[in-house]
Amino acid sequence: MTEGQRRSPGGSSGRPDRSAKAGGGHAGSGPGADQLGALLGRVARGDQDAYAAVYDRTAGQVLGLVLSIVRDPAQSEEVAQEVLLDVWRSASRFDAELGSAAAWVMTLAHRRAVDRVRSEQKAAEREMRVASSAVAYDEVAEAVEARLDRERVRRCLGSLTELQRESVTLAYYGGYTYREVAGLLGVAIGTVKTRMRDGLIRLRDCLGVDP
């Protein structure tokens, strides 16, 4: 996350030409990252103890992300459960060449959550949602690492332009498509696409994460 890595604001996005560089840790590259990848390798061979360890490292993030998109606690737990089982089922498909283990898991989670909210909203679930929203979740605020991550993410989000930040947060935490984001923000579709990309590039550089 040195200045040199940052893209010039606005110019942004140029061609993706970022050279590989050892990252300073976050989800993808922190001290736990390689361990998670190694655990997934064991999970792929059917090791249930390794799976329990993977669960313990990822379930809180998976559920938290799903909750931010799906909102309804009961449904979110369903989706989180599906995601975590997917990790078990498809661990053999994880390829460290294509990215970190944490990113792989969170990509599964995000996609499932988004699929859930974009599938036709079922009247039944809406009806029940009102009644079933009593579950409360503790934020894992006391976990130092989590708090540091949170602060870093907040700081890096703060380094984006307002439009970049809104585009990224609505898409990622809200599960909206870029067309929906454009509608919500009242800006042109092309602008939103560009801001999403520029915003993520800036975040990536600020966070010092590495593929």
Partner: peptide
């Protein structure tokens, strides 16, 4: 790939304590 790593970091900021029964 790089952008996905960035989104994983965003996900990390949402962590909650899952209910014990889920495990």
């Amino acid at each position: 790939r790089g952008l996905r790593e960035a989104t994983a970091a965003l996900a990390g900021a949402t962590a909650v304590r899952p209910p014990a029964a889920l495990r």
